[in-house]
Design a binder for these strands. Structure first.
Lengths: 267, 267
DNA sequence: GGTTTGGCGTGATCTGAATCACGGTAAACG
DNA sequence: CGTTTACCGTGATTCAGATCACGCCAAACC
């Protein structure tokens, strides 16, 4: 069975333990943080749609038995790079930063995970150490399934194994896209432009307005595109001066998408 | 059933089509190229050990039915980046370069695939386009399984799906290591040092002597570490001058492994 | 309400490595 | 067997961006 996970830093509290309980439709409520707490989070709707829904009832039953759920405060780490893989986390609410760092303190942020993402999946499947560090950047809720439980589950339910393979493929491809950005573009200007466009495509409110929230610090953006904090600041200033975009607090508005796209082509 | 694959460039010839034939132990022979041609390559020993061996007989039977095999000359491309995924290739003999390039002609080499590798797996599983271009850099032999056949096979044989997930995890983690090298190191010197060490670890003959063959051009090495051809040349010259390594033709000998490792730490 | 802390803005400086522009060599090719 | 092609080696030049070193502001914290 699954041991509930102990966050390495910060406090936490358990919400549910889906043990021998049939899946229910979420009864959502509000936490003090404004975080959406999902009762019996195995059923959280996000990834389920493409990952574990449509599984036969017995499989879902089993899944809920091996799943434990917890909330984590800002700053908690789900796991750290180099640590032996304990299992997989399913992010239900909040955001988690996936990063890796070199011995000299330099950090590369791979991705900001969204609700529905599976964290630590490659390490859990392959049995190697976690390849990244997962740090909670805003109060979050996540399910945990231990490695042995998860592998047994996959062995018993081939259908789920295929889903997992699909998930892995997509993780791979998105990581690969990141790699392209960093590896194939010369200028930091180009990388930042690419970053802004990616971010707007993924995080824009669905009304289509090219406006979105960017809660990352310049430092963090720098670590995502492989540049220094100062150049990010300078480039943003430059983009503003050239009327490519507008920034108010954490809200970013794209003023001239075409102009930004042209930065990708040459220079 | 599987359509045999048509290489997009260069000539090719078929070797076998494992159609309704039980798996046999390889009867290897020599091709004009000196390439080891593996009769009924489904049984090729490399990856099998960790991928498809130990599957029940029926699964192996089915696998051989949907697999077709072909040889490819140097310069042939198995698939190109952006192309809809047709299926997966199992490299049996030879080497294949996986690369991606930007619109302005810049190229990033992700990996040189070895016999036993599965090529195009993430794209085939996820259904998106191939994310890289696979170019044959020396006469090679590969099996092909079409996407629909492969997915059906995985649906029927959950055990195999789990193996595939493991394979994907390892692919991901090795790509991730590559990403770290490129993203986390400042100097080209550091990246080249890392490249040399990686390469020696993976490609050194097993006697432990720190000597290996490096058939890549400086240009290609540059594309692997994200640098220019000239700096690779200059750095190699520098490494030689500092007695860190020795180069004779395509043979590289590490003279001072410690010295090279120290380049990773700082600078 | 003072003070500490974390993030942003900007100048000055300096250097690693890209780029350009060659020449040399050796294998491939007709 | 000349010639073309592919790679390697090296100098000269240039510049993007890292780094250092500040000051500023606002929120968080006693």
């Amino acid at each position: 069975m699954s041991d509930p996970e102990t966050p390495k830093t910060g406090s936490f509290r358990f919400v549910t333990r889906g043990r021998g309980r049939a899946m229910r439709i979420n009864t959502a409520m509000r936490s003090p943080y404004g975080l959406q707490i999902v009762e019996d989070c195995v059923a959280c709707p996000h990834k389920e749609s493409r990952l574990f829904c449509n599984l036969p009832g017995a499989a879902l039953q089993r899944l809920s038995e091996i799943t434990s759920s917890a909330t984590y405060p800002k700053g908690a780490t789900l796991f750290v790079e180099g640590q032996a893989a304990r299992g997989v986390f399913i992010l239900c609410a909040g955001h988690v930063k996936l990063s890796t760092s070199s011995s000299d303190g330099r950090t590369l942020i791979l991705r900001i995970s969204e609700p529905g993402d599976l964290l630590g999946l490659p390490a859990t499947i392959s049995g190697r150490a976690y390849e990244v560090t997962a740090e909670v950047i805003e109060p979050s809720q996540a399910n945990f399934i231990s490695r042995t439980d998860f592998l047994n589950f996959l062995r018993e339910h081939g259908e789920a194994a295929l889903r997992v393979a699909q998930e892995l493929s997509e993780t791979y491809q998105s990581a690969f896209a990141e790699m392209r950005t960093i590896g194939l573009s010369h200028s930091a200007r180009e990388k930042l432009a690419r970053f802004v466009l990616d971010w707007s495509a993924q995080h824009a409110p669905e009304n289509g307005a090219i406006k979105f929230n960017l809660t990352l610090t310049h430092e963090e953006i720098a670590q995502m595109i492989g540049a220094s904090r100062e150049t990010v600041t300078r480039l943003f200033a430059d983009f503003k001066k050239k009327n490519l975009l507008q920034i108010k607090g954490s809200s970013v508005t794209i003023k001239d998408k075409l102009g930004i796209e042209q930065l990708l082509q040459q220079s």
